[in-house]
Amino acid sequence: MPWILGSGSSEVSALPDPLLHVQNLRTYFFTYAGIVKAVDDISLDVSKGETLGVVGESGSGKTVTAQSILRIVPSPGKIVDGTIEFEGKSLMKLREKDMQRIRGKDIAYVPQDPTSTLDPVYRVGEQLSEVIMRHHVISRKDALAKATDLLRSVEIPDPEIRISQYPHELSGGTKQRIAIARALAGDPVLIIADEPTTALDVTIQAQILDLLKELKNRLNVAMILITHDMGIVADVCDRVTVLYAGQVCESGTVEQVFEKPKHPYTQALLTSVPNLALRKEKLSVIPGNVPNLIEPPSGCRFNPRCPYAQQICIDKVPELEPIGEGRSVHCHRWKELDLKSPVAS
């Protein structure tokens, strides 16, 4: 596995020099209905050249985590607590002006919907060269040439033609490639891709995933890939952090988490999703619904839906416990539980 790319050590909590270190992040939305605790104590680490998968359903806080890292949380949301360190610097303390320099240059963002990310009134070339010129001292002509190279590097056919086209002339897949090209324009060390293939068809998704894997190997860029699809995580990521209702369930390498999940939610995610490789008569079901984040369940937030829940799970919020080999788990009962994964069998 290419996960060794980043660093030799696999200690999550004690990565020698993590590229990005997020600790105890809390981001709340102050709505008229109450305080939505969208992100409530999330910690994660990304080391150089590594791809971290962040998995969760809607309302798990995966998008808000990404927005918090970039400090682009929309109103009425606010980061209330936590540390975010990037290359050893705290991003929380940075002035907005310095943050702007980091956004798009060091940390790039690929949003979910390729259609709404490109400005419909400018040509593709203009949009790309604008980003290039903001981060490099370069003439307009050279910027355009670099933009063409970027399009070529994301495998868009006929980049010379595409550069003078408007976004509405392009298909969804091409637009997502351009969004990726724009993310690469500032030579970032970290790309945050928020559900980059959800809006695309399966065959186009396959193209984009292939492109992401290829870029990661070629440019050795670190990536946070946000998704709800365990299949994509297994395919693209080195490590994975599973989120549920604004909290971390567990983190570890993809092999560890898929083969020996330690958190009941992770296991449920693996067994309740129809799997092409295994056909079963009946899917196992996670009962209930995703919880309300204004008044989340007490204790472990998964407890109302967890088949293994006991009194302690209702009474006490579990710690995010490092359990060795770089893994950490957010469950009271992980030691006693022997969770089976469909992957291992």
Binding site: F29, T31, A33, G34, V36, A38, S58, G59, T63, V64, P74, G77, N289, V290, P291, N292, L293, I294
Partner: peptide, 15 residues
Amino acid sequence: MTSDRKMAQTTLEQR
């Protein structure tokens, strides 16, 4: 933003 809207909506679901 869709996700916080979705959250605001979940607030009413579990009465």
